[in-house]
Amino acid sequence: MLSPYHPLQLALGLTIWITWFALMYGALGIACEVAPPPIEQGSFTWINVALLLTTLAITGLLFYWAHQCWRAAHVVNKPKDPSRTFIANLGASINLVGAIATLSLGLMVLLLPPCL
């Protein structure tokens, strides 16, 4: 994992989110073009399951990073330089926002069929 004090922590979590989002949207379009499941199958289709798994994986990763950043700022070797603490704290929050955003969007796959 990138150091919790690295300035890229201010962008990493949400960059992962937007990349995942764009890929998920693109993958949905391709999947519906290549192998659309029957509408009657509802939301329990291979597409929804695949999207849900990626959602959970990315959410878990971002929660883990958020936790690591928070620990670095508050528990482990609390740095004397306030700039480093600031970045670790903010990085934790941004990873957390990324995780929440991923989960909020991804859970939609439980509700709707993919290609309707």
């Binding site: 989002f21 379009g29 955003a101 909020s104 796959v109 709707l112 069929p113």
Partner: peptide
């Protein structure tokens, strides 16, 4: 566009109200 894709963007549009 598919309703599921609309739901993604609908949720994202609501999320931005939080910050």
């Amino acid at each position: 566009i598919p309703k599921l894709a609309q739901a993604f963007f609908s949720v994202a549009s609501m999320l931005i109200a939080i910050p």
